[in-house]
Design a protein around this nucleic acid. Structure first.
Ligand SMILES: [Mn+2]
Ligand SMILES: [Mn+2]
Ligand SMILES: [Zn+2]
Ligand SMILES: [Zn+2]
Lengths: 149, 149
DNA sequence: TGGTAACAAACAATCGTTGTAAACTAGGTG
DNA sequence: CACCTAGTTTACAACGATTGTTTGTTACCA
């Protein structure tokens, strides 16, 4: 009923892909790194362990994992997509100042009335809710600056 | 209580910006073109009338209008942002196949319980709801292809 | 009649991502 | 083992969207 978030390596093999050292490392990093890493984040971490790792391989592996539904690639408008390894429906807080992405562990649309959607003949496969604004640090910092001098 | 969508030119002047022919044209196009045009869409339309128009000027003007809250620039993950001239809160349908962006004239989060957000010390300024899936044409086309031959 | 501030154009550069081709690797075959 | 092959990774060029820089224009005013 609920696929284990911590089984990326198994998912790869189940889908007939070879478990290469590169893929293994990328899977581990995804399961280890907190938050919503970018491809570049993963690349940096990966090259620290395996200097020959190519950025292209990171992208390819992410698309493979996303293609088999093991992760999602979300775009919150901060330039470049981010890896989402929490597959349960949830919302995101995105700071317009520092770009930080935080999980909100509920789906605000869960019990909304979505009957309006019927008229569109649109097959909804997935939904995304983003709250944009300022995180605590950025809120404090910006208001502090504004009143100074 | 409700700023007129059709007053971009006035908004520019109210904010102390000169009403140049370029800005005037871009404002007109935003108010005329249906849907959610990209910067490139506007640039194409603009150069048809004013061939010297620079893409940079389109971008600059869009950021100026967005900065004064006259439009919004939304990123639905189709590569590049789109101009949103309907400022009332509403959701979007985004087709994963053709990229079409359709307005859903309701805000599904409007009467959701957002008390969970309080614990985050995050100042929400704006929210975004996207439904991803397949539009009618793409749904028909893809299922038609799958069953043939 | 310059002087200057705001603006737009031309064009190079940047960022995130993708295409291409060459090199590598594990698993068969003889 | 020497060879073949499919799958994979790498190096690197190219791409689309956006931005920086520099230079040219324009409106307006002392
Ligand atoms: Mn998340
Ligand atoms: Mn819209
Ligand atoms: Zn922040
Ligand atoms: Zn479609």
């Amino acid at each position: 009923m609920k696929q284990p978030t911590g089984g990326l390596v198994e998912r790869l093999k189940d889908n007939g892909l070879k478990l290469t050292p590169q893929r293994h490392l990328i899977c581990q990093l995804i399961e280890t790194l907190p938050g919503h890493p970018t491809a570049e984040d993963l690349y940096e971490q990966a090259t620290a362990v395996m200097p020959s790792m190519s950025l292209k391989t990171v992208y390819s592996t992410l698309y493979e994992l996303a293609g088999m539904g093991a992760i999602r690639l979300v775009n919150v408008g901060t330039g470049g997509f981010r890896v989402e390894s929490h597959l349960e429906p949830h919302a995101h807080l995105v700071c317009r100042s520092c770009g930080q992405v935080t999980d909100v562990p509920v789906d605000p649309v869960a019990d909304a009335d979505l009957s309006v959607l019927e008229q569109f003949d649109f097959v909804v496969e997935q939904r995304e809710v983003i709250f944009r604004g300022l995180c605590r640090e950025c809120g404090l910092r910006l208001s502090g600056e504004g009143s100074g001098s």
